[in-house]
Design a protein around this nucleic acid. Structure first.
Lengths: 350, 350
DNA sequence: TTGTAGGCGTTATCAC
DNA sequence: GTGATAACGCCTACAA
């Protein structure tokens, strides 16, 4: 009933309409502009007027409409966006947390969306967020061509790419030291006498995968170790495939003396599969994970700090929003070998 | 240069201004309204006109401003909010994922914010989100008085409370079967002959904590087992305190034969502390956690499905948005005992 | 100290 | 089919 000319009044429409500044102004007997001044804590308002307005606000339950505000003010939505693959994955949720902390510091809200590793959906999400006028966007890209962002980039919207660089686009990027981390792992295993080091990896065409496997090849080559391709299993992001690969490896006439896994999810699947063998190969995994230190053989890993990645992305983003014009930067976040036991087993048939 | 009367042109202002429908209209030689029609896929537009407009849109890099759109359309921001304690906690990130899936289904965006268990911050976030005109809000409450939401609730904004009910407010709520789950755990331990069952818990004044410890007391009472208060340790959400409590318990003249922990974080701390003892008490924890099955003694837990909680919250929220007027509902999500080994150890001094 | 006029970018209404 | 005009709720600029 309170909404003047709405459709036939269904019984569920709200009994109280949302008040506007004009409503508050009417209730307080002042002009709309005075209410605006009070709401925004502007100085030149009589204390008694201010008080009356505050009462009207409280009584009506008025709440400033930030949508209208940001429309008038230009592009100040005070919102940034984050696109990741899956918030339920601890790697991404840590990134989100790091970024949110920074956003909070600058009094910004964060909209998080999951691309589910789908390039098309990523693009839809980017468009939806830009249409909502987020002021900047952090993206863990799933797609392989980001040239569609170039117009938006020229208009001043900052984009920060996380974990993987953009393709066909020049913008700030934060990646792990994928190659260096893998080199650490492989050198570590070599130093314990391993020569047959298997790799169970995800998709080697994805940036992180390509870097990691390149680190493996490089390190073997530098040490003059011939590479046995039968020890390399790809596309094992799925737990089932990783376990299958582990079983295949362990049943080779000459099984590997060590296994390197390129991600935490693969690591866990591999370790699960290894439980059924008495002979335990040495093991090092890329990415740390909860309880790695609590397993029967504590797990040696290449660790890094995803929350730090998120936080750095945020700082770069806000620097850009503040007008920073420094050249596009690529930040490389270091990795760290954490020695726990599984990586220090020696080859039995040395 | 392109912005007419802005302040002195600093070198970093965007070289291209963001085009509006009017710009597109000028470029295409049509009226603004026609552009609007094309953008919104309205039917009565000549195909040739439509084509010209599309070209202008592509050429200028036009993107509809959803802020202006939703201002004009009333309250259709197509955005909902979620307030949790910490997105880096798997319990909450799973909730977020479940909710986001539903939001996605209805073509809504999700804004996630972390209250950090701070009632004041929770309230600030609620206000910020409502000012941004989210159409509904899911909250894992940190505060202890939500009457401040009643005006907003009357205006039709749906609020769904997750994991803990609201205080001083009647609205839809989704909680775990905290009491029932704890009863399952304690009965399970009793059935294996345990009579001295310690509890390491968080804050017993928080709703979930209160329900869980009540389930413990209840079950002991029903079985005629006297309750030994020296076996109950509270406020152990911090890992250090949980470990300390474990050590104290294990060094009692007569240590407990079983330990029940009220959350996954506590469980992990307790299990870490237990590693230094040869005698292993039976153990059951509330909440499942990754790798619980991989520990030297696989961990028996009371499991549940946080993503399902998030999804259900979402469905109720969207039902409310669609006008559902059914009475306020409290949904109780069931828990499940997962038997893995640690809960099936028998008391040694039986 | 307070108020008026105009516009932010879009959609709704109604005329052509 | 297409276009002028008036909102949406707020803020900026300027006037009183």
């Amino acid at each position: 009933m309170s909404t003047p000319a709405s459709s036939i009044n269904e019984s569920n429409d709200p009994p109280f309409a949302r008040p506007t500044m004009q409503d508050v102004a009417n209730a307080a007997g002042v002009s709309l502009k005075t209410v605006s001044r009070v709401v925004n804590n502007e100085p030149r308002v009589d204390d008694r007027t201010r008080e009356r307005v505050h009462q009207a606000i409280a009584q009506l339950g008025f709440r400033r409409n930030d949508i209208a505000r940001s429309l008038r003010q230009g592009q100040a939505s005070s919102t940034i966006g984050l696109i990741i693959e899956d918030i339920a994955n601890p790697f991404y949720s840590s990134i989100a947390r790091g970024l949110e902390r920074v956003a909070q510091k600058y009094n910004y809200m964060l909209i998080i969306s999951n691309s589910e590793e789908n390039a098309l959906r990523e693009r839809e999400l980017v468009n939806a967020l830009l249409s909502r006028r987020v002021e900047g966007l952090c993206i863990v890209p799933a797609g392989s061509d980001h040239s569609y962002l170039s117009a938006e980039l020229r208009m001043g919207t900052p984009f920060i790419f996380l974990d993987r660089p953009p393709m066909q686009l020049q913008t700030d990027t934060i990646v792990l030291d994928n190659r260096g981390g893998t080199r650490q792992a492989i050198k570590h295993l070599l130093s314990y006498g391993h020569r047959r080091i298997a790799v169970i990896q995800g998709d080697p065409r994805v940036y992180t995968g390509a870097e990691r496997i390149a680190g493996y090849y490089e390190t073997l080559a530098e040490h003059g170790i011939p590479c046995d391709e039968t020890l390399i299993y790809s596309n094992c992001d799925d737990a089932r495939q990783a376990q299958q690969a582990t079983h295949t490896l362990m049943n080779l006439p000459q099984p590997p003396s060590a296994i390197f896994s390129t991600s935490n999810r693969i690591s866990i699947a591999v370790l699960r599969a290894l439980r059924s063998y008495t002979f335990q190969p040495a093991f090092v995994g890329f990415d740390d994970f909860d309880l790695a230190d609590m397993l029967p053989v504590p797990v040696t890993v290449i660790a890094h700090d995803p929350a730090e990645m998120g936080a750095r992305a945020g700082e770069i983003l806000f620097a850009r929003l503040a007008g920073s014009n420094v050249p596009v930067q690529q930040t490389i976040v270091p990795t760290q070998l954490i020695v726990r036991g599984s990586g220090e087993l020696r080859p039995s048939q040395a």
